[in-house]
């Protein structure tokens, strides 16, 4: 199979792929100056990178074969955790966001305990149903969470002073963009290294044949737990960041089907089995939706995502990433 050999080949980077990667990196670095600085294109790309991180976090589960429809539970818990800590504790957002992530990770542990035996479609259904638990509790615990009114007045990400230079993420969209770019790159490299490590191989064996993996010495239960914790923690962090970006959280906003769906769509479109797939999906699809479709259909533009998921699974189930890799291999050999 062509794609198989391509996979081997790219491990030892070809000149073409190095050139493409550096060109891509420079493009992303200079994006704010290429477009109107801080304009809609810059903001759309910021959010695309943000959703790329969300998709990467989701894809950790998918790498293990667990297709989740309920990641918005982690997202919402992260958002609420960070927002409420800021509201009651007046802490720095950069401190509360990881704490929100830990709250998400805690729910991930609960998933592991409760859904330990579920795989495939039953797991997906259970994850979908599990969203309602934190959502309804937060919705009804009005004295603490303000119920369906939500938490408002959440402070934006606090500025950081580097020497004499002030990085103000709340006010300056270009600074925010670069924060997201750095965060995404860091996460992406971490993800790539993790997948190539033994741990990554263990995750892969569980996806391909769990019984065989167990009888070859892979600790399936522990690896599943680690995967859920990582994925939930990162999704929770994304939720926390989102709360500070928006300045408000409410149950319907952060526990929405849309947030569960987006990372799934982006990962499937970009390629679930490549480390860069989710990010690729995000930077292609999200701006397409926000910039092009949103102006055409102000309401209901997200129909694009549904359409894309159906088309991708029917036509090239491996996703864009695998397809591109094949092209790249053909071009470089």
């Amino acid at each position: 199979m062509g794609e198989d050999k391509a996979m081997k080949r790219v491990r030892t980077p070809t000149r073409l792929s190095v050139a493409l990667l550096s060109a891509g990196f420079l493009l992303f670095l200079g994006w704010p100056w290429l477009t109107a600085r801080g304009g809609i294109h810059c903001q759309a790309m910021s959010m695309a990178l943000f959703h790329g991180c969300l998709a990467l976090a989701w894809n950790i589960c998918s790498m293990m074969g667990a297709v989740s429809l309920g990641h918005t539970a982690f997202f919402g818990l992260g958002a609420y955790g960070s927002a409420l800590l800021c509201h009651y504790g007046h802490l720095n957002p950069f401190l509360t966001i990881p704490l929100g992530g830990i709250l998400g990770a805690f729910y991930g542990v609960l998933w592991h305990i409760a859904f330990g035996k579920l795989r495939g479609a039953p797991f997906a259904l259970a994850s979908l149903a599990s969203v309602e638990i934190p959502k309804v509790i937060i919705d009804n615990w009005e004295s603490f969470t303000f119920g369906s009114l939500g938490v408002v007045g959440i402070p934006p990400l606090s500025p950081i002073r580097v020497g004499s230079f002030m990085l103000d993420f709340g006010e300056n969209p270009v600074h925010l963009y670069h924060l997201f770019l750095v965060g995404t790159l860091f996460l992406c490299l971490l993800y790539r290294q993790a997948l190539r490590s033994r741990w990554g191989w263990a995750v892969r064996t569980i996806r391909e044949d769990e019984t065989a993996a167990a009888s070859l010495g892979v600790n399936v239960r522990r690896t599943r737990l680690q995967v859920f914790i990582c994925s939930a923690f990162l999704t929770g962090i994304c939720g926390g960041v989102y709360a500070h970006l928006m300045g408000l959280v409410e149950p319907a906003l952060v526990f929405s089907l849309h947030i569960s769906a987006l990372p799934l769509v982006l990962s499937i479109f970009g390629g679930r089995f490549q480390w860069y797939g989710p990010l690729l999906g995000a930077v292609v699809l999200y701006p397409l939706d926000q910039v092009v479709f949103r102006s055409l259909f102000p309401v209901g533009h997200s129909a694009l995502y549904g359409f894309v998921v159906i088309l991708t699974l029917m036509l090239f189930p491996q996703g864009m990433g695998a397809w591109l890799q094949k092209r790249l291999h053909l071009a470089s050999s």
């Binding site: 198989d4 391909e208 044949d209 065989a212 993996a213 009888s215």
Partner: peptide, 26 residues
Amino acid sequence: ARTFQIPRPFPQMTVLENVLVGIWFG
């Protein structure tokens, strides 16, 4: 260690990688 009556390879991995998994984790 055991073999399975109905073989259970890791279908997406190469034969070499299949064996390496045993070496790494077993």
